[in-house]
């Protein structure tokens, strides 16, 4: 699905990513963990096309295309989805309007006609039930006056509507109570299929219990210093990130 090679990125001259190598095969769920400031969110943002970072080296091949050459909107149309750590509020523009615009942007990109209004509403009604939101909420402004948990549910609702090939979820599980966490992990599990891949950026093992990843990678100081199966989460929980520096030194040498 996606192949990241030697990715270096900096912001205002300060290196954030210092050579990321990561392969995510079709149909797999990979988790990215690591301490604050290790570059997890930066990696997620760069994959989605945020422009404030300067890519100094490396490549990201997604479905045989160089992702780094596409704008954020083009990446979305190619099937990349970013679940935001801090979803934005857009008062006066309804969630449904945005979703219809997003779906139609994809269709236009692929040379297809706009989605039928009735089909769209049926689809929205079906998917919104999965995240425990109401159509009333969907008709409100994008995340307008939503609680933190509602915003995250809404990200998952959007993801289910847009049916991405590659979903990158940036701490979508942070700050959630157990019910909301279940909604989020159910949503991710619902999306799982041999044609779709998921990147979970998370601080917490809790999500990975509901949504078991194929691989876990540990990011530290802009590099992946350790990779393993789902059991790595237990190790990290037991040991913390304290001995990563030695790993980092070992990788660097």
């Amino acid at each position: 699905m996606i192949s990241i090679k030697n990715l270096h990125a900096e912001v205002e001259g300060k290196p954030i990513l210092r050579g990321i190598d990561l392969e995510i095969p079709d149909g797999e769920v990979h988790a990215i963990m690591g301490p604050n400031g290790s570059g997890k969110s930066t990696l997620a943002s760069i994959l989605a096309g945020r422009e404030e970072y300067e890519i100094t080296e490396g490549s990201v091949i997604y479905k045989d295309k160089e992702l780094l050459e596409l704008g954020a909107d083009e990446r979305a149309c190619e099937g990349v989805f970013l679940g935001f750590q801090y979803p934005v509020e857009i008062p006066g523009v309804s969630n449904l309007y945005l979703l219809r615009a997003a779906l139609n942007a994809r269709r236009k990109y692929r040379g297809e006609p706009e989605i039928d209004a009735v089909d769209f509403m049926q689809m929205a009604q079906e998917k919104i039930a999965h995240v425990g939101m109401s159509m009333e909420m969907a008709k409100r402004g994008v995340n307008e006056d939503f609680s933190g948990g509602e915003k995250k549910r809404n990200e998952i609702f959007q993801m289910l509507m847009l049916e991405p090939s590659l979903a990158v979820l940036d701490e979508t599980d942070s700050g959630l109570d157990i019910d909301a966490l279940k909604v989020v992990s159910d949503g991710i599990n619902r999306l799982r299929s041999p044609e779709r891949s998921v990147v979970l950026v998370t601080h917490y093992k809790r999500l990975l219990e509901h949504c078991v990843p194929d691989r876990i990678h540990v990011l530290y100081q802009g590099r992946i210093v350790r990779s393993g199966g789902p059991e790595l989460a237990d190790t990290l929980e037991a040991e913390g990130y304290a001995n990563l520096e030695t790993d980092e030194a070992a990788t660097a040498s």
Binding site: A48, G49, R50, E51, G71, A72, D73, R75, A76, C77, F81, L82, F84, P87, V88, I90, P91, G92, V93, L98, L99, A101, A102, L103, A105, R106, Y109, G141, Q158, L162
Partner: peptide
């Protein structure tokens, strides 16, 4: 702007939508 673009809306469209908002 990035939020809207990440959903597939082009740059100008994103700016128009946010201005409307």
């Amino acid at each position: 702007v990035f939020y809207l673009k990440s959903r597939g809306v082009d740059e100008e469209g994103a700016r128009a939508i946010l201005t409307y908002s």
